[in-house]
Amino acid sequence: MSDDIIAMLKENVIQGRMTGEDEGVDDTVTGPGVVELTQRAIDEHIPPQDIITGGLTAGMEIVGEKFNAGEYYVPDMLASAEAVSEAMDILKPLLAGTDVKPKGTFAIATVKGDIHDIGKNIVSILVKGAGYEVVDLGIDVPTDKIVDYVREHKPAFLGLSALLTTTMLVMGEVVTALNAAGLREQVKIFVGGAAVSKEYAEAIGADAYCSDGFEAVRILESMSVV
């Protein structure tokens, strides 16, 4: 029975059905959605960790594959990620009492001078869906504000977004400022956005370049294993 619920949960993540009222990617799927199934799994005393790995994460992995293969589009991916994010909010209080370690905080900002938020928001929702605590610092965030945040809250990860070739340069300034403040070693820096390249990420000394939100999650997971 519990296997059935987990399998249904995974399928509904793939379908992007947050609740039973939502239409899925395929118009044939009906019944309870991710939120109802998560609650049902909790009621049946399935460990939260199993709900996450067997249902939510396993489903999102397939969504990522389909997106990368060009089979899924941005709206499909967002529907799934938002469903998972909603389920994580239900599960989070239950994780506190277990030996499951929190995955760490991922702070994210669009850098000073850049007001583009769509890419940042997509990455936020995918990272949150993967079980990380996400703190969105907003758009057009001054470098000193980012440095202050890292100093005070010590996030494990910092994501920087920029769409423009001009504002991309600010990412380098953020890395330099964190170095100057002696904070560089305590945080892993992820950069991404339309103008950014792997070469640029390496040149400014970022820890990772992410071509999209799924890659951000993949790299986060690989770092967390270590």
Binding site: P75, L78, I118, N121
Partner: peptide, 8 residues
Amino acid sequence: VLPVSVDS
């Protein structure tokens, strides 16, 4: 103009 893919 914002993408409908992100917000319908």
